[in-house]
């Protein structure tokens, strides 16, 4: 066990965990930030996507000891009141079905638009292809990403 000071959603949090613990479980079990979801544990489904230094990463394979003082943003910290352009677009398009994968989808989409504010359809497909939605909301996810891009660019 070791103590880690983490910068999460603009706050400093301290946890005492095994250094190999993935951030997914640090967030869910130790910090009660349960918006980040467990789907596969092997970086295949994207349900656990968070931002590390502004980049979308898979929290299920990111060990707490690898984080250092880099800034972490989770779905809970993406905006103050569901008003990030991606969240607003998700609400406008009414994307979710079961909703379980959606935090990961949103975090991936937000990181995409940060790096590429005006992605083409195939760029959206490529960026989002690592995120599985078992309910099959892909056409709505794509529409919401396009809408978020438009609203940010207008």
């Amino acid at each position: 066990m070791a103590t880690f000071k983490l910068n999460i959603n603009g706050e400093t949090k301290e946890v005492d965990v095994d250094p190999n613990t993935p951030m997914l479980w640090v967030l869910r079990d130790h910090l009660n930030l349960v918006g980040t979801k467990y789907g596969c544990g092997i970086a295949q489904c994207g349900s656990c996507a968070i931002h590390l230094g502004g980049i979308a990463v898979r929290a299920c394979v990111l060990t707490v000891s690898a984080v250092g003082n880099q800034e972490i943003t989770t779905i809970e910290g993406l905006s103050e009141n569901a008003d990030h352009p991606v969240q607003k677009a998700w609400l406008e398009v009414d994307v979710p079905q079961c909703g379980y994968c959606q935090p990961g989808q949103i975090m991936t989409a937000a990181a995409l638009l940060d790096n590429n504010p005006n992605p083409s359809d195939s760029e959206i497909e490529m960026a989002m292809n690592g995120n599985i939605c078992r309910c099959g909301t892909y056409t709505r996810i794509k529409k919401a990403v396009q809408l978020a891009a438009e609203s940010t660019n207008s």
Binding site: V34, K37, I75, I106
Partner: peptide
């Protein structure tokens, strides 16, 4: 009518069985 849970979903609120604490 829009999904009454959409806001909770897009903000990562605790709502699923596995979120229980």
């Amino acid at each position: 009518r829009k999904n009454v849970d959409a806001k909770g979903i897009v903000t990562g609120q605790s709502m699923f069985g596995s979120d229980y604490q």
